[in-house]
Design a protein around this nucleic acid. Structure first.
Length: 295
DNA sequence: AGTTGTCAAGCTAGT
DNA sequence: ACTAGCTTGACAACT
């Protein structure tokens, strides 16, 4: 079981998600930004190694505008060495990484141009992980998409779009249950038909479910992951105190986290803590696991 | 130096 | 009709 956090480390003084405005796009600016982002990614992974955090979500902003028509630059070629080096570091230290395209990536949209842009964005994500030289256990996580007032039709569009995806995307794509539209059962149903692994989001599951316990849910999701996919990835969070329903907490509630781990024993999976204060909560979770004799 | 309007992109639910 | 929230604020112009 590896513990991780998404995208940004708040204590090392750099970010691998620096960007700039489309209006100020230039090849020079792109090279300068990606260069500094890659440097920071390496620094972040070194911090993670030193602190026993072996799971990490790489930011989608690593290469700004990578899937935008304005970008004609072959960034993967230009930064080949840096990507390879960081990839070797990841592999040498037996780290697991993932990526999570943002909310604009919706492959079941009825709008053809939205789908087209979404696929381009997925291809970009796959290219980052390919450039790092990582195998198919490095995943890209996505939701099923919108409902548009007709779930069966929306799922049908998803299936059609999924089948047309490039192999480089398909080998990494996993689908995550969301908190309002598509439950774990919806994802499992589509997975059975199309063959992708299902990433389990425990907090979304608390918001939207079909009565499965955490243990049942983790078991069901884990069964969709084959050897080539690696072990199940789980996104974990809990309710923000006083916040509206299904808003993420700013700091880990260790009692709830330990309860979740105990409830799902002895199933093994990697945990991504989707919590605002990032590595601070991840460190606490890692120590809690150690005390439980599980890391 | 600090503040603030705005930024490539979608969809849902709540007001 | 508008906006917060999502997984994540930060760029860049202005004071």
């Amino acid at each position: 079981m590896k513990i991780g956090y998404p995208c940004i480390n708040t204590s090392i003084g750099c970010r691998s998600s620096s960007t700039f405005r489309l209006a100020s796009y230039s090849e020079e600016r792109l090279v300068q930004t990606v260069s500094s982002n890659l440097e920071c990614l390496q620094k972040t992974l070194e911090y993670n190694k030193q602190n026993g955090l072996l799971f990490f979500r790489i930011t989608s902003d690593l290469v700004p505008f990578a899937s935008h028509p304005v970008c004609k630059f072959d960034w993967a070629k230009h930064f080949k060495k840096q990507f390879k080096q960081t990839g070797l570091f990841i592999k040498k230290n037996k780290m697991r990484v993932s990526m999570h395209p943002d909310q604009f990536v919706v492959i079941n949209s009825p709008k053809a141009d939205v789908v087209k842009r979404s696929v381009a964005e997925l291809v970009y994500h796959a290219r980052v992980l390919d450039s790092l030289g990582l195998d198919s256990t490095a995943k890209i996580q996505l939701h099923l998409g919108g409902v548009y007032g007709d779930k069966p039709a929306a799922l049908e569009r998803f299936a059609k779009a999924y089948k047309k995806l490039p192999a480089a995307v398909k080998k990494r794509l996993v689908i995550e249950n969301d908190d309002r539209s598509y439950s774990l059962a919806n994802c499992l149903g589509a997975s059975e038909r199309l063959g992708f692994p299902v990433l389990f989001d425990s907090f979304h599951h608390e918001c939207l479910n079909n009565g499965e316990s955490f243990k049942q849910a983790v078991e069901l999701a884990a069964n969709t992951w084959e050897k080539k996919d690696g072990i199940l990835m789980v996104d974990y969070s809990s309710q923000k105190k006083g916040g509206r329903k299904c808003s993420h907490t700013h700091h880990i509630d260790l009692r709830l986290f330990e309860k979740f781990i105990k409830q799902t024993r002895p199933l093994d999976f990697d945990v991504m803590l989707e919590i605002k204060d990032k590595e601070a909560s991840a460190l606490k979770a890692r120590r809690a696991l150690e005390q439980m004799g599980l890391s």
